[in-house]
Amino acid sequence: MIRLQRMLGAAALIALVGATACKKEAPPTIGGADTTMAMPSTNLSVTGIELGKAVGVDKRVSMPMTTFGTRDTIYASVATSGAPATATLSAVWSFTQDGQTAVVDSSSQTISPTGDAVTEFHVSRANAWPTGTYKVEVFANGASAGSRDFEVR
């Protein structure tokens, strides 16, 4: 009798361990929806350049324009996508007159974006801007990424 009780006890223990082991198995997948997140690219690409007289906290120009007054501060808002560890954006501002071009200013900003970002560059002058045709060219890691022409009247 005691032997029978021991055998039954051992069988019950085996059944319990088996049940516990079964509980540890992953539940079967239902539906099979893909929950993988899309990772941002590690390359920086410029997705837009806009000019204006002011930018908001989001660094975007509040009112895009291409004609400025002689006393304006001129902003170039550069939208980018991608998440490189670091990337350098540069803006080269130039003035053209009688077929000659002079560099007005060049400045760079090194950023570590985690996705879509906006970077603003601005130029101002204590004296009035000479009237005429200007251009801002944007470079991403040294490669031209686009330009915008504008006028000062």
């Binding site: 660094k59 501002w93 560099v103 200013d105 900003q109 950023i111 970077t119 130029v123 204590a126 004296n127």
Partner: peptide, 19 residues
């Protein structure tokens, strides 16, 4: 003659973390 732009002030800022 081309204008002198040596007095131009410039700056930049970004929504991304700046290095």
């Amino acid at each position: 003659p081309m204008p002198d732009f040596s007095d131009v002030q410039s700056g930049s800022s970004s929504t991304a973390r700046e290095t």
